[in-house]
Design a protein around this nucleic acid. Structure first.
Lengths: 244, 244
DNA sequence: ACCCATCTGAGCGATAACTCACATAACGTT
DNA sequence: AACGTTATGTGAGTTATCGCTCAGATGGGT
């Protein structure tokens, strides 16, 4: 059984939690709980999507894969968002891959149920569009950040973003995987991570990174972290109940 | 008079041309013709948008501006698209700047007229969302490209993209401006452009670049050019009459 | 016809990041 | 407890790009 069930409350996902009662009730029965293992490919580049995913505890990365196999992350989503915007934007697919970056749970919704509710043009519609704009901000910032900032700064940003979507301080994550996200070599991550460890901001052993000092990371990382975070609050804050 | 009039046909813009007759007719009278000078700022980062712009002959760049003043282009739009998606996505603004990269004409539409038609959930709605997904592809590809490809390849891609939106082979454009788009130093652009000139793919003198050999540029540039172009056709091809 | 602002070419040292190669360390399995 | 696999550390050599500086070229304006 590749997609185990779970019993999370769907409203652990902030977007689902933001829906008015009647809209949520209509979707509720169609929300299918799924447990997502690390590395699972949610969808492949160019592949028609069947489901949209609302993570509760999982984190999913959007990755671009070049012809020569090199990769770079363009965005990530956890319980703050969803994966599969191509379904309601009209394209049915996108030229990128979605991979589970941190194992955990999610709810998925079939294309048809999604579109039925989307086309009712209620808050669901508006929230999905606002989230899409947020995702664009994330991607845009990444585009500029990739060009203008150092590996160490980008690593800090990535760690902070991931930490924001996690319930713990421990990331199950090797340097090699992070390198694929940042679009750099593994050695580059090892050196940057070594620096952060030396400064006692993080600690890692063989595939787990523990975050010790968020403030410290925030002071090293580029402005990109803050800009994106503030844009989430601006775009979706009024819908999201203040927790997390 | 900062925004001179013009008499272009609004349907020179492919998105407007794609609208069904009745939807176009409703918008027609609200479309205000404007001439846009090189360098004009259409909107500033964080500024509430008043209009959405549909270029006919102008090209508009979306630029990210870092706190230290360095810049990087994340996307561009000409008669293939529009500028101001934040208006219908719900955010009213985005953390980037839109600048006229090539002088020319456009039509603009006031926020209210735009939203009235958008909320009718007709083809206008669907086309705008599909275009938004296309723009996300453009930005995503730029994010990965910025990380993984050389200045010379990115310059070729940029020249090709610009050329696709132009009616001539001549770009009014200094190396310095291109450097701001690509997020590199002016010298880097001069060297890359020098190579292209030596290979007789382009020719430039003091602020104008002439494109001689598109095929040649396409053979040098990275896959990113093609991926984005094909995604435009996939997402919007069925709406767009085959010209350009 | 000249001047001057602006654009481009070129050189040089500094540095970040890459490539390649191999050593060491941690963990799971048997 | 030994072994194999996978993760991390490190070093040497290379390349791309940066930052700075200045010279030379171009073309518009007076």
């Amino acid at each position: 059984m590749r997609a185990a069930k779970h019993t999370d409350d769907p409203r652990m996902n902030h977007l689902l939690a933001a829906l008015p009662g009647d809209e949520f009730d209509r979707l509720k029965t169609d929300l299918e709980p799924v447990s997502l293992a690390l590395g699972k490919v949610i969808y492949e580049s160019g592949e028609q999507l069947e489901y949209i995913y609302f993570p509760t505890t999982a984190i999913i990365s959007l990755l671009y894969i070049m012809e020569n196999g090199s990769t770079a992350e363009i965005g990530m989503a956890g319980n703050d968002g969803l994966v599969g915007i191509a379904l309601f934007m009209g394209g049915s697919t996108t030229p990128n891959r979605a991979v589970v970056q941190s194992a955990g749970n999610a709810f998925r919704l079939r294309s048809k149920a999604l579109l039925d509710e989307f086309q009712k043009s209620g808050e669901f519609h508006d929230i999905l569009l606002r989230y899409t704009q947020y995702l664009m901000t994330q991607i845009s910032q990444t585009a500029a950040c990739n060009r203008l900032h150092s590996v160490e700064q980008r690593l800090c940003r990535w760690l902070l973003n991931t930490h924001d979507l996690l319930q713990t301080n421990k990331l199950i994550m090797t340097h090699d995987l992070i390198a694929n996200m940042l679009g750099v070599r593994r050695e580059g991550v090892s050196i940057a991570a070594g620096n952060l460890q030396r400064e006692e901001l993080i600690k890692y052993v063989r595939g787990t990174i523990t975050i010790f000092d968020r403030k410290g990371l925030e002071s090293i990382t580029c402005e990109c972290y803050k800009v994106v975070k503030e844009e989430y609050d601006r775009l979706l804050g009024k819908y999201i109940s203040k927790n997390s």
